[in-house]
Amino acid sequence: MCLAIPAKVTALEAGDMAVVAFEGVKKRISVALVDDIDVGDYVLVHVGYALHRVSEEDAMRTLALMGEAGILTEELQEMKEGAA
């Protein structure tokens, strides 16, 4: 695969470098692959490089989708029980 994890940009530095935080762990990485990074953005980090910005909106939407799954089952169950 490619081990990559999200981190929060805490400072931008010269030469396309930035400091990012994984919880309290800070690491200098390159942001040469992604344009217009701002402090506070979350980026996906792989081998010391930001690969992509993480979309908060999409993350929330995905989690909401996952959350709906179980509800649907329960509703179906209720419907069945209601019918019976």
């Binding site: 994890i5 994984f22 309290g24 980090v45």
Partner: peptide, 12 residues
């Protein structure tokens, strides 16, 4: 600890 967890995620 959260930071140990994070460092381990970072380094695999």
């Amino acid at each position: 600890k959260p930071d140990v967890h994070a460092a381990c995620e970072l380094l695999g």
